[in-house]
């Protein structure tokens, strides 16, 4: 077992809207990532996966507010720190964050190399321009980015190249955790593949020690991360290895999600896609019991009556459902047999 890079336990955060209403976007989420591992977070839009990314960086600025829970990055508890402190001490050298539109964040009047110089200065690293340039050139070469990029402005680069450059810049300090929130969703498939390959290289070459990858595209997640966690309405509903999650989901929601995967591979045309009727609950006043109960085909009145806790099975898999794993599998078996 590797060293734990990031651990959060029972994290709860909320948004406060303009009309002073509370929206509980992340509710009691726990997770742990070890060195050399990557975790994928999947879920529908509005399930709180992007909020979770912001929350676990400890980066709390209005309208996002911290309620309770611990965040520990490589042995350091950051949930007690002030947001300003987190920004100076943690972001960049401990945790790097790449949002979906990261490539649009590059100031068009600056050359790429000057962003890297800025990163160095912001973290108080004393290096000459020459040293920074040499280091950046080496890193870019390792990641398969051409050296000329360093001397270019952001507008001269294609979308895919921009996104890869941003990732290279944000990981230049070799952070312990990289949080990537839909880093390739705005790109065409070819650029997406290159972004994914680069993130793999970052992991393999040890430039980042662990990674959290957030996306709604399950086939992508399956190919990128070791583990997958499925979120629904602000809570984790199931977690396991990528293979287990895609081919043997337990929770009825992940079962439905996995059943809606479409890939251009033979045999897919004959499969019937799963559809989940209904819409996710409103997070302003989430249901007391199981949040999926309203849409679940196996729901019983008990499901909506009491809060459901996470349960562990098969040593390291987790799920959040009232039914036992055996019972769920039986139910699925019957369903397939019909």
């Amino acid at each position: 077992m590797g060293k734990t890079m990031l651990e959060i336990s029972h994290l709860k955060t909320k948004y406060i809207t303009r009309f002073h209403e509370d929206v509980y976007a992340v509710d009691d989420v726990s997770l742990k990532i070890e060195e050399g591992k990557s975790l994928g977070i999947a879920g529908e839009s509005g399930c709180g996966k992007s909020t979770l990314a912001l929350s676990l960086m400890g980066y709390y600025f209005a309208p996002l507010h911290y309620i309770s829970g611990d965040i520990i990055v490589d042995g350091v508890k950051i949930s007690d720190m002030k947001p300003e402190q987190v920004r100076h001490k943690i972001l960049g050298n401990e945790i790097a964050y790449i949002p979906q539109a990261a490539m649009n964040a590059l100031n068009p009047t600056q050359k790429i190399i000057s962003f890297i110089e800025d990163v160095m200065h912001a973290h108080g690293i004393k290096m000459t321009k020459k040293e920074i340039y040499d280091m950046a050139r080496e890193r870019f070469a390792e990641l398969g980015l051409p050296e000329e990029v360093l001397q270019k402005h952001a507008v001269e680069l294609s979308g895919g190249m921009k996104q890869r450059t941003v990732i290279a810049i944000s990981t230049i300090l070799s952070p312990k955790v990289l949080i990537a929130d839909e880093p390739s969703s705005a790109l065409d498939v070819t650029s997406q593949k290159m972004v994914i390959r680069m993130m793999r290289e970052l992991m393999e070459k040890g430039y980042i020690k662990s990674m959290i990858f957030i996306t709604h595209e399950l086939p992508l997640l399956y190919n990128v991360t070791d583990d997958i966690m499925v979120m629904y309405a602000g809570q984790m509903v199931e977690k396991g290895t990528a293979k287990e999650m895609v081919f043997d989901p337990v929770h009825p929601y992940s079962k439905g999600l996995m059943g809606s995967i479409i890939v251009p591979e033979s045999g897919v045309r004959e499969r019937k896609l799963t559809a989940i009727p209904g819409t996710p609950p409103n997070l302003k006043n989430p249901p007391k019991g199981c949040r999926f109960a309203e849409r679940c085909p196996y729901a019983t009145p008990t499901c909506s009556a009491m809060a459901i806790d996470e349960k562990v099975f098969d040593d390291d898999r987790m799920y959040r459902c009232l039914m036992s794993v055996r019972k769920i599998r039986e139910a699925y078996g019957n369903g397939d047999g019909e």
């Binding site: 390959r197 190919n223 591979e265």
Partner: peptide, 18 residues
């Protein structure tokens, strides 16, 4: 080839460097 696969192996090395 650029679309992620599930049943077959998705070969990341056949990337066209553009």
């Amino acid at each position: 080839s650029d679309v992620p696969k599930i049943y077959e192996k998705w070969d990341l090395d056949t990337v066209l460097n553009k």
